[in-house]
């Protein structure tokens, strides 16, 4: 359910960015941020998610990206699936909880996604245009920053929700 909500928010954010100007579309990928965030947060607080669930989430997000961007279907689907699986596997082996670490994971995930995309385009879509170096760097940086921002926002919401629940419990008295 949270993934569907995240997907809706990401698509909305992406549509807004595209409407703001054509320069935002190639450097802004909120669907990747969603996928990496889910992969990083898997396993925390006892969530029953694993690399395969993350890979499915990446798969769906990638296909949505493909459908909305009008590119070749399966291009982002393949790349995002691979990224989600890899990040989830890394998360299982390492403790990634600090904002800086999460940002670094976002940067690396975005770079990995771009590499996969470039490789697939080179193999399957020779006429496809690769992003320029500048836009690639910007895209990687934006992904890292957005991931940190989403993480901090989610943490804040979690803390506030926990406080609200505590207050609610303290008001209840059992005589």
């Amino acid at each position: 359910m949270r993934f569907v909500f995240g997907l809706v928010v990401s698509v909305t954010a992406w549509s807004l960015a595209v409407r703001m100007g054509p320069i935002f579309a190639p450097v802004f990928d909120p669907l990747l941020v969603l996928v990496v965030y889910l992969a990083v947060r898997q396993g925390v607080a006892g969530r029953p998610t694993g690399p395969l669930t993350c890979a499915f989430a990446g798969s769906v997000a990638g296909l949505v990206h493909d459908a909305l961007t009008g590119g070749r279907l399966g291009l982002y689907g393949f790349a995002d699936t691979l990224v989600a699986w890899t990040v989830a596997k890394v998360q299982q082996r390492m403790v990634i909880q600090q904002p800086l670490q999460i940002g670094l994971v976002g940067v690396l995930a975005s770079a990995f996604q771009l590499t996969v995309l470039a490789f697939l385009q080179f193999l399957l879509v020779p006429s496809g245009q690769l992003p320029t170096l500048g836009s690639a760097v910007l895209r990687i940086a934006i992904c890292g920053v957005l991931l940190v921002a989403v993480h901090l926002l989610a943490e804040q919401l979690r803390i506030r929700y926990a406080r609200w629940r505590e207050k609610r419990w303290s008001r209840l008295r059992f005589d």
């Binding site: 690399p51 395969l52 890979a55 499915f56 798969s59 990638g62 070749r72 279907l73 399966g74 291009l75 689907g77 393949f78 699936t81 691979l82 699986w85 697939l120 399957l124």
Partner: peptide, 16 residues
């Protein structure tokens, strides 16, 4: 399953 998922995407890609 993961490999199957990747292969499904590759099949989609090859269909163009």
């Amino acid at each position: 399953f993961f490999v199957l998922l990747l292969l499904a995407h590759l099949a989609l890609l090859s269909q163009g």
